[in-house]
Design a protein around this nucleic acid. Structure first.
Lengths: 323, 323
DNA sequence: GGTGGCAAGGAAATCGATTGCCTAGAAGCT
DNA sequence: AGCTTCTAGGCAATCGATTTCCTTGCCACC
């Protein structure tokens, strides 16, 4: 390539990278030669010299899925703008795989690492004293000095409850996932606290179950059979909400007429598939991914970034709570 | 590291890679030193020398989503066993982005590229005369000499129809996605041909619409309003099937009592969320991803692999077609 | 006309690991 | 004893780009 342009490789490098003192005409000649030959610089050689790889690793601790994807897309967006690529590693909740991938990423000298997972509960740091910056997205690190970007789930629950109050409901129940699940308890507590703060009693004790439509259906039966006077239900997930809506309708209750329902996740197939369409809380996963990537870039550039950062949720009102 | 073990870097390299003639004791000493220092070889330097990166690129032409993920997981599984990593690139259906990512992958000297997409329709080859092997997964290349791994959708449709016939249905209709969508037409034709081959008339003309639950609901209304005598419906997707089931039930028809329903995709949230649980055709996307990765590895190892390969589907019977 | 200053581009060291070649020492053979 | 043979491990070239330093040539100025 350098030969075609009649210059040395050193000069060619300068020409393509905009360095050094070169006549504009020479620069142009090199660029044209590169174009003509379809020349692309070898990234390995470059990174060997510069120490930068323009690559970040993304380790999903749980399997890749509904939560990781928007995070990935958000991160990719923020990094792609800076011409960086993403190495995706799926540790499948296996610490051995996780450490293996960590070694791989380190051997590839990635500029930084984003750690994500399917649940928001804090996890052990992926490593200590690592030679590259690390940011946790969605999941948070148990070490509070680590940088984590997490959704403010309590905020989401608050918004859901306030919305139900705002549309005139007062007999509000909460149906959610397993009691041992961090998200379930955080959201349940925030929902209860919000009700209390507004001077309203919960219409029923929180119902813990699974994150499934089947549980939502079952929960509808339970709520109705206890004879509780319920005019709204805040659900811990869209799947539960959808099952609950079907359960209520099957028992002859109208949604939102008799009972208004709010879900959580704003998962398109659920909120749109549900009749009526489901009001839901959106955690803005893509925004979390983007934000995590931006923080990682800041760390790569030497800025000091520490501690967890909670991002607010927003509520998307739909027919299931229409007045 | 070499210093700690008291050998030269060349010897250390041989020790860690199992090359050269070394005393077992020396080899061990080096390995222990590497362990102690947490030494990991610099991948860039290695690949500069060996020409191999142990990395493959995966370009999803459409956005990352429900179809790409299982493909990715399958590919990752097959490649991870060979210690290779995956570079994920989301071209978002934008040719510019696609070419940009292609350049990036080439500059990183990936050992091979897997191209995937959200639809099975053949696409233009991503490049000609590329210096690395390419395999298409799920999507296929318009160039028949390119290596593509695709689901045999016609086979899937055949299995669905035969299953309905096997459980005693004879008045079978087909509801599917947009007529301009490759998958929709392929499946519809295969369904019709299978019926014909079995000497059965379709109960109604194929209904084309969208890939959504809403369309499924609407289609239920259309089928019932035409007064067609239908005892089974084969749907082009699980979402359509679920909407259709709800539509039928809303009109007082029993599933599978009055009408049996089969979906397509075997998408867990749909087939499990549906009441009754949905019989569906599984394209085995993970298997396609794995298969594509294995073919790519074969090509990387210099084997000649050409042409498209269709993989059979399988049917997963559930309550919606129970006898 | 000699010298200083500047512009343009070349030469060579460098990054870190791999690997072919070579050498020193030990062992085996006659 | 002297020679060959073998083994273990060191030396140095190599991969491809970047970057520092240095050279060359040109111009201006005194």
């Amino acid at each position: 390539m350098a030969a075609l342009a009649g210059v040395s490789t050193g000069t060619a490098s300068k020409a393509l990278n905009g360095r050094g003192a070169l006549r504009p005409e020479t620069r142009l000649r090199v660029q044209q030669a590169a174009e003509q030959l379809g020349f692309v610089a070898n990234a390995a050689a470059r990174s060997l010299q510069t120490g930068r790889t323009y690559t970040v690793g993304m380790i999903t601790t749980d399997s890749i899925g509904r939560f990781s994807i928007p995070l990935l897309i958000g991160a990719e967006g923020a990094l792609g703008a800076g011409q960086m690529s993403v190495f995706l590693c799926d540790a499948r909740d296996d610490p051995i795989r996780e450490q293996y991938y960590l070694r791989t990423l380190l051997s590839r000298k990635v500029d930084g690492i984003i750690v994500t997972g399917r649940r928001t509960q804090a996890r052990a740091p992926i490593g200590v004293g690592l030679p590259v910056p690390v940011v946790y997205a969605f999941i948070s690190s148990a070490d509070p000095s680590d940088c984590s970007v997490i959704p403010d789930e309590a905020d989401g629950a608050r918004r859901a409850v306030r919305h139900l109050l705002a549309v005139g409901r007062r007999r509000i129940a909460h149906v959610t996932g397993p009691e041992h699940h961090h998200s379930a308890t955080v959201r349940a507590r925030a929902a209860a606290d919000t009700l209390t703060a507004e001077g309203v009693q919960p219409a029923a004790p929180t119902l813990y179950g699974e994150w499934s439509e089947a549980w939502g259906r079952q929960a509808a039966g339970i709520l109705l059979s206890t004879g509780a006077d319920v005019d709204a239900v805040f659900c811990g997930s869209d799947q539960i909400a959808r099952g609950l809506v079907e359960g209520l309708q099957g028992a002859g209750r109208a949604v939102p007429g008799d009972v208004a329902v709010v879900g959580f996740d704003n998962w398109d197939v659920m909120v749109d598939g549900c009749r009526p369409a489901l009001t839901s809380v959106d955690m803005d996963l893509e925004g979390i991914g983007r934000s995590a990537a931006e923080l990682l870039l800041a760390k790569i550039n030497g800025e000091q970034v520490h501690g967890p950062r909670a991002r607010p949720c927003h509520l998307v009102p739909r027919a299931s709570t229409a007045v």
